[in-house]
């Protein structure tokens, strides 16, 4: 129990870019703990000899030829933008990151 505490959820919320209040973090921690507890058995079922399946129907080498197709107009591209300027999407300041 309590593997997922408030600090852990706060870190996950930061990774997932969702702002959460202290109460939300506590509530989420409680709910996730129950859920994770109930699905934990999954990690004990399959041994090393069982391969992982990431696609239900296995396909390989699905390619596109290198031929240009239809593009959006600048107007279409920006049609849903919350804010735009000079044909580009406008976003608030990005403080010192990469």
């Amino acid at each position: 129990m309590s593997e997922i505490n408030r600090e852990a959820v706060a870190h996950l919320a930061q990774l997932a870019r969702i702002e959460m209040t202290a109460e939300e973090l506590d509530k989420m921690a409680g709910e996730l703990d129950v859920i994770v507890d109930s699905i934990k058995t999954v990690s004990e079922v399959a041994g090393d000899d069982v391969p992982a399946t990431s696609h239900p129907i296995p396909l390989t080498n699905v390619f596109r030829e290198d031929v240009p197709g239809q593009t959006l107009t600048n107007e279409q591209a920006l049609s849903g933008a919350p804010d735009a300027e000079d044909g580009r999407f406008k976003v608030p300041a990005i403080l010192d990151e990469e």
Binding site: I4, A8, V9, L12, A13, L15, A16, I18, M20, M28, E31, L32, I35, V36, V42, S43, E44, V45, A46, V50, P51, A52, T53, S54, P56
Partner: peptide, 30 residues
């Protein structure tokens, strides 16, 4: 939606991937 995003972020995060996402993909094989 938030619950599932946080749960998924947890299952994929460093140190948990093999136990959770990786194991689940093996169950899928079974």
């Amino acid at each position: 939606v938030k619950r599932r995003i946080i749960l998924g972020t947890y299952a994929l995060s460093a140190g948990y991937y093999d136990a959770y996402y990786g194991s689940a993909q093996k169950v899928r094989t079974l």
